[in-house]
Each structure stands twice: as C-alpha cells, then as structure tokens.
Design a protein around this nucleic acid. Structure first.
Lengths: 214, 214
DNA sequence: CACCAAATTTGGAGTCACTGAAAAATTGTT
DNA sequence: AACAATTTTTCAGTGACTCCAAATTTGGTG
C-alpha cells in the first residue's frame, strides 16, 4: 500500500506540474521561469528539479501516453487488420469521438499555440515524435518477427507516423490561422481518406514531370 | 566587390567555425565550452555570439545545404521523372559516388558519434529535418499547383523524407555498432530498393494479423 | 597624413537553467 | 522519545546567452 510519504510525494509532484502548466498556458513557456513556478508551488527550485529533469518536462509531463499511442494501436489491432488499417480505424474513431488522441479536440488551441511559440518546446516535441516512431517500429518488428537488420519495420513505422503527424500539424496550422474547428475536422476527414489511401497504395506517380515534347 | 572589412568578417567567421568544429570532434560537443572556442580562436565570447546565434549553430554551420537537398532534387528532376523517382535516382547516385549527401560517406563516423551523444545536437537536428520536410513540401506544392489547403504535398514530402531519414539512420546505427562501412552500404542498396518500392506502391498489407480461426 | 563616422570587437554586469554537496527538516519505526 | 531514512532546502557554482556602453578598427574625405 501507499504510505504517507509516497502520497505526499505524488501530491507535491502533481501540484508542481499543475501550477506550472497554469502559468505556462497563461503567460507562455519562455516567459515563466522555473523560479516562479517554484515560488507559486511554495517549494524550492531544487525541489522542482528533483521531480522534473528539465523545464520542458514540466510542460510535457504525461508525454508517455502520446509516445505509446501508435504502438498500442498496433498491438491491439483486430484479427484481419493490417498495421495501417488499425491506425486508420483508430484515427477516424478519435475524430468521431472528438477526443485528445490526435490533438484535434476542442481546447487544444492554447496548448498548441504555446508549443508553437517556443523553440525549446518544439525541439522537445520533435524528440517525442522520434520516440513514438521508435516504439511503433519495435512493435512492428515484434509482430512480424523481423530480422534485426531489416529496415522494413522502421520504414513502415516512419511512414505511418509521418501521415499522422502531418494530419495533426495540418489541423494545428489551420486552427492557428483562426479557421473554425468543426470545419477543419470535416475537411480533415476527407483529406485523411486520401492520406491513408496514399499510405496504403503508394505515391509512385506523384508530381510526375511531363516528358519534353519539343 | 568585397572590401577588406567584409573579407575579414568572412575569414573570422570561418576561423571560428573551423576551430570550434575541431574542438567538438576531438572532445565532444557538450564538453567544449563556448569560452574555450573563443579563446582558441583568439576572440571574445561575445564575438562568437556575434557570428553564431547559438552554440549549436557552431556545429551545424552549413546546414542550409542539407535542408535544401530534397527540394532541390525535386526541382531539378528530369522530364518523365516523378518526385519519388527523382529522389530514388539521386539517392543511388550518391551511394554509388560515396559522397556526403545522405550521410553515408567515409569519415562521417566521428561526426555521427558526436551528434548521437549530445541531446542538444539531436534536438537541433530534428528541427533541421522538419525544415527539410517543409522545403520539400513547398517545392512539391509549387510543382503540382496544389491548393493551399491541400495536405497532399505535405504528406508526400513527409513520406519521402521519412524514407531517406530512416535509411540514413539505419546506416548510422549499424556503423556505430562497428560494422564495416562497405558491407552496410551494399546491404543498404538492397534495402533501399525495398524502401522505395514500399514508398511507390504502399504498405497496405503490412503486419496483417491473421483472422482468428478458433 | 589627420580626422571623422560607421562598423566591429570587447568588457562587464546580469538572467536563467541546471548541478552538486552538505545542512536542515520531516517522516516511519522502535 | 530517539534513531535512521528520506525529502527539502540552502549555498555555491557553471555555462549559455543578452544587453549596453566603452574601446578599437576600418573606409573614406579634406
């Protein structure tokens, strides 16, 4: 069971994270110092660094879920379902239910804006994306009993990730430009069909330059 | 023409970059301070920051070429050649000639190692990759007269980039594990064929889970 | 050559993220 | 109440990076 010691630790950690996120969303990641977070949470700066390795960790606390998302979709895929098929289904389910999984839910705006205005957060997010790709690749390699030197799982993982990431980013860009959320989502639905078709059937003839006839 | 002022500036900048790279390769990025670079280059720390915005810029000086690489390949593609086709050709040409373009040349090892052991450099490299994708997407959008809200160019760009990046990384990983360079290259040649075939024809049935027959 | 204005370099003072170690406070147990 | 383990704080750095004003260097002019 959980003693008083562990409970206080968990609570302190959570309190720091919550207060930090509040300040970050309110004033921007770069404009809030760790010292301010510490003061607001009524702990010392070193206590903050005791719980969170870096300032970015304060913002991207529950990042593990995001990193594991695609690998989990693969491992949980249904009989008769391919890797791409499972992600395709999960993506549209998430879109239909309007949940957070692919970053297209109501209320992601402020979060998105804060990420996009901070180079530090963007860099950190890039690494998260890389990690997600890695976990997906490992899941695929497992599921297909691939040879360790076979790049195929990594290639497929990279391509699946790139589709998801691109669609998510596309939503963010248009949302930041002020477009209506529902309108983007319904548009995304159509574009996502194209996207997953491209993924499943290839982009071989894209941007084919006409032969010169002069 | 170029006055003495401009020439000295260019020379100073180059000297700082060269000396910095020497120190970084010798001792590792994180273990060399900007102050040391400044001292070795016989300038003040502020002069270093006058020429280079961040410490990472000192390491990744000529990064523009890398970022522009794929967009340029598209814009220079031959009549009758598709986007993927052009990259495919360029990739194999580079492999045949053993040049630096896809990071698989002799002597990339130390550079690669130094990047992989520094979180700061990896984060910076991630942003470079993103930028490269962006430039490629813009080139594709231009070439296909795509609608501004059409994600297709971005999807294709992301997929092309992901293949190239994955192959490059695969090389790096095996090289870091000590495997012979030529052996990896010849192996990569075969895997790259598979990779570009996947890219051209899709990954629709990958990891298809058998239907349960119980 | 002497001199001026513009550009470049430098020094110094400061901010902020982050580290390490030792002192101080808190907690679980006997 | 006392002791040991754990957590928190304090203190003293380091290193990247910024801002500003002073000093130096350079190109051009009389």
């Amino acid at each position: 069971m959980e003693g008083l010691r562990e409970r206080k630790k968990r609570e302190t950690r959570q309190r720091i994270a919550d207060i930090a996120m509040g300040l970050f969303l309110q004033r921007g990641f770069d404009d809030v110092t760790v010292a301010e977070v510490a003061r607001a949470a009524d702990v010392s700066v070193n206590t903050v660094f005791n719980y969170f390795h870096t300032k970015e960790d304060l913002f991207l606390d529950r990042s593990e879920d995001v990193e594991n998302l695609l690998a989990r979709v693969i491992l949980d895929r249904r009989p008769g379902e391919s890797a791409v098929g499972a992600v395709r289904r999960d993506f549209f389910e998430s879109l239909r239910d309007g949940d957070w999984r692919y970053g297209m839910h109501e209320g992601a705006d402020l979060f998105t804006r804060r990420v996009r205005e901070s180079a530090a957060l963007q860099a950190r997010l890039s690494l998260m994306t890389r990690r997600r790709e890695e976990l997906l690749a490992e899941a695929l390699a497992d599921e297909t009993d691939a040879d360790p030197d076979d790049v195929t799982p990594w290639l497929v993982a990279a391509q699946i990730c790139s589709v998801v990431t691109t669609l998510t980013r596309h939503f963010a860009v248009r949302r930041m430009a002020g477009e209506d959320g529902d309108r983007i989502v319904s548009d995304i639905r159509a574009q996502a069909e194209i996207a997953f078709d491209l993924l499943e059937h290839g982009v071989g003839d894209y941007a084919l330059r006409p032969a010169t006839d002069g």
